[in-house]
Nucleic acid binder design. Structure first.
Length: 774
DNA sequence: CAGTGAGCGAGCTTCCGCTTGACTT
């Protein structure tokens, strides 16, 4: 039995550290937090000065039992969780949950996983920082109180199963408000004038592209300028050269990795994290949930070596970047390759691509600035006071650009052409090849993508590296926001071209308003946000997190008692929850669309128990009102009377097939065909309003074919079935499912085999999360 | 997941932050 037990948070980290420490040390992982507030009764005794009630997570029982046993037999237990608020609390919870003897327990911390850092840490143990632990408890309790009092309020006032919280509700607010700005936005057009000049010199014909810095407000003004330019002379008025430089971006944090992987590799935020986790677990990159841009000394010297080897001494510039994120806790390094001399990752294509991005970003961050020369040329127009401007940029020394350039999310509309300018002198005359006046529209602020929302949240200090991806998925799961699917619509714009002394008008068109993959609020998201803003503007404030963080810091510094802070917050908060419960109306977002021309009854749209719906008729009328759910791409806010009337044309009878009626209708999960009590979803390309009986039958037959492959074996009497599922073959028995072991051929399973699998799974299941709800 | 929306009522939903497999149809 090892004399020393070291406990860290992550198993991958445990494996690495064990190698450094030798055989006297056993390194194990707690897998994050081992205890949390109890689920029932909020897990807080409010009347008892907010005393938290902790319980060991059901899926952590096994870990705790094992650690307990190991701790008993160890001489010294080293708690090596991260050096931040959560890490300190993890250590404290371990002391409590494992019932550790204070005398043989030591707390150590290190920021990088190197032999030196770890042996150094072992030499400098300390006790647990109770103040820091209390700051964490305050954070945890505040989040629980906010979440578990606001959510039930939403169930009562808006719709069941909704949720609210310090982080998610503000994330949704950002998206809702951005959408409102976009709706309010009225594009204005102006005319941008560009010109291509030519110059013959040294027997060569050179081109210079230039643009007017000012834009013309009206078509007429732009036309007039072109008219004036017909006979004009163009002269180089001035040439100005200025040195410039570009510096590399800092190494990746979780948030910047998510942004770049989204822009350069089109990875959703969740995919980036999954792939990064794989790279981490195979020891190829450092920890992927970090807010630090710091690199270890070892990494710095490795980077230097690689850069000098590849590009030479003058490309190397060792830098350390200050972390600028609000509330950063910096318990880890930046995300970097474990070994910078590994140029390529082993593993899947996705792993290779993400690794390459990380490698380049890390290396570039340790390279010299790029040196540029920027040239601005002004060109006079003899018959007008306006001047054209041509810009050139020469890279004098490429520096880090050799390896990596950070990308930008939005393409700048006014992106000027930059490049090499021909050799020119002041006073030289230029010929005009072509001049264009192009109508340009101002654009509304862009919708958030997953990655740009993460960036915004990080800027506001809301959320942590471990929660960015889950938050994004929560607000989608609650149907507060959805991802857009529109490629945009065509918009025509005017183009005037002056060429060979003639002006021609030639309209062109462009796509505008594309929202594919962007986050768009739903009716529910908008209504919930409005509701919360009305009654809980303090929690919806973009600075709420920053404010409470300041108080957590005071608690961590021993300047404030945690339960005092919570009491000050909870008093007015809880009262507001109570009064809102009593006094506020149920939120329906109801809109009267008009009158049904057939029946003369009122038509409304509003939020129902299952989501947005349309309604014909009033409840007081003799004939009961009829209801129909809105389609996925429709919203209470924008649906028209005509569109609402369409919804009531379902279910539609298509005729008979095999002596049973075939109907098409629209349900919770979209349009479907119903036949013999069987349901078949329509495909994307099918329109429920026009689908024919033939097509419907085709779909039914397709489904039958698919179902045929679903059943591998059936034991009728016992009610046991062997089926093919999304995750491979499984056994179904009494509505519970069991995986077929990999070493068994599902076709050859006997009844005894199945029974055995079922009973064995039963014993194993006790330890895992069985509470899985449907 | 299941293809509804009257009304009644039981029983359920929910937070943020740490961390991985287990989970599923």
């Amino acid at each position: 039995m090892a004399k020393n037990l070291v406990i860290v948070e992550s198993p991958a980290k445990a494996k690495t550290i064990e190698k450094f420490l030798g055989k006297d040390y056993l390194v194990k992982s707690s897998y994050g937090h081992v205890r949390d507030l109890a689920k029932k009764n909020q897990g807080i005794e409010i009347e008892n000065d907010f005393k938290p009630v902790y319980e060991i997570d059901s899926d952590k029982k096994k870990v705790v039992t094992e650690l307990k046993k190991l701790a008993k037999n160890a001489e010294t237990i080293w708690l090596a969780s991260d050096e931040d608020r959560e890490g300190e609390a993890i250590s404290w919870h371990l002391v409590k949950a494992l019932n550790l003897d204070q005398n043989k327990t030591k707390r150590i911390v290190f920021h990088e996983i190197t032999k030196q850092a770890i042996t150094e840490a072992i030499k400098n143990p300390r006790g647990i920082d109770e103040n820091l632990v209390n700051a964490q408890q305050a954070r945890r309790i505040l989040d629980r109180l906010v979440g578990f009092e606001l959510s039930p309020l939403l169930w009562r006032k808006i719709k069941p199963s909704l949720s609210a919280g310090r982080v998610q509700s503000v994330a949704v607010r950002l998206i809702v408000e951005r959408e409102q700005e976009i709706k309010k936005f009225k594009p204005e057009s102006s005319y941008k004038v560009t010109a291509i000049f030519h110059l013959s010199k040294d027997g060569k014909n050179h081109q210079i592209k230039a643009e007017l810095p000012k834009r013309f407000k009206t078509e007429q003004a732009a036309y007039n300028f072109l008219e004036k330019s017909k006979e004009a002379e163009f002269t180089i008025a001035s040439i100005e050269k200025k040195p410039g430089k570009k510096s590399p971006a800092p190494p990746f944090t979780t948030s910047t990795l998510q942004q770049e992987a989204s822009r350069k590799l089109s990875f959703p935020v969740s995919k980036t994290m999954v792939v990064a986790q794989q790279l981490y677990e195979s020891g190829q990159i450092t920890y992927m949930r970090t807010d630090s841009t710091n690199l270890s000394n070892m990494a710095l010297s490795q980077a230097k070596k690689e850069i000098i080897k590849d590009f030479g001494e003058k490309y190397s510039k060792t830098r350390q970047f200050a972390t600028k994120a609000k509330g950063a806790q910096e318990a880890h390094e930046a995300i970097r390759p474990t070994f910078l001399n590994h140029r390529e990752a082993s593993g899947s294509q996705d792993q290779k691509r993400l690794y390459e991005l990380i490698w380049k970003r890390t290396i570039a961050s340790q390279m010299a600035d790029a040196q540029l020369e920027r040239t601005t040329v002004k060109i006079d127009v003899s018959r007008a006071k306006e001047q054209f401007i041509a810009k050139g940029e020469i890279v004098k020394f490429d520096g880090f650009l050799k390896v990596y350039l950070e990308s930008r999310e939005e393409d700048d509309d006014g992106e000027e052409e930059k490049g090499l300018l021909p050799p020119i002198k002041e006073g030289e005359k230029l010929g005009l090849e072509e001049m264009n006046a192009i109508q340009r529209f101002t654009s509304p602020p862009p919708r958030y993508s997953e990655a740009s929302l993460v960036k915004k949240l990080e800027d506001l200090g809301i959320g942590r590296p471990s929660t960015y991806a889950p938050t994004i998925s929560t607000i989608q799961k609650r149907q507060y926001v959805t991802k857009g699917v529109s490629e945009g619509t065509q918009r025509t714009y005017q183009v005037y071209t002056l060429k060979g002394n003639e002006i021609q008008k030639d309209p062109s068109s462009e796509k505008t308003g594309a929202d594919k993959g962007k986050l768009i609020p739903t009716d529910i998201g908008t209504l919930v946000t409005q509701f919360l803003l009305e009654y809980f503007d303090n929690i919806m404030d973009y600075n709420f997190t920053a404010k409470v963080e300041k108080e957590f810091d005071e608690i961590a510094n021993g300047l404030k008692k945690w339960n005092e802070m919570i009491r000050e917050f909870y008093g007015p908060f809880h009262e507001k929850v109570e009064t809102t419960l009593q006094n506020s109306e149920r939120v329906k977002g109801e809109r009267h669309l008009g009158i049904d021309p057939k029946s003369g009854r009122n038509i409304y749209v509003k939020l129902g128990r299952y989501g947005p719906m349309a309604q014909i008729g009033d409840r007081e009328e003799e004939e009961k009102p009829k209801f129909a759910g809105l389609r996925k791409n429709q919203s209470i806010e924008s649906i028209t009377l005509e569109e609402a009337l369409e919804l009531f044309k379902f279910p539609r009878e298509l005729g008979e097939f095999e002596e049973s009626p075939v109907t098409v209708s629209i349900g919770r999960f979209g349009p479907y065909v119903r036949h013999n009590n069987k349901f078949v979803s329509l495909k994307k390309e099918d329109d429920p309003a026009t689908i024919t009986k033939e097509r419907a039958i085709e779909l039914i037959k397709e489904k039958r074919e698919k179902d045929k492959n679903k059943y591998i074996k059936t034991f009728e009497e016992e009610g046991i079935q062997v089926l093919n599922g999304r995750w491979g073959p499984y056994i179904s028995h009494k509505k519970k499912n069991y995986k077929v072991p990999k070493d068994k051929e599902p076709k050859d399973l006997t009844l005894e085999d199945c029974k055995k699998i079922i009973s064995e799974a039963g014993t194993k299941k006790k330890n895992s999360r069985t509470k899985k709800k449907k």
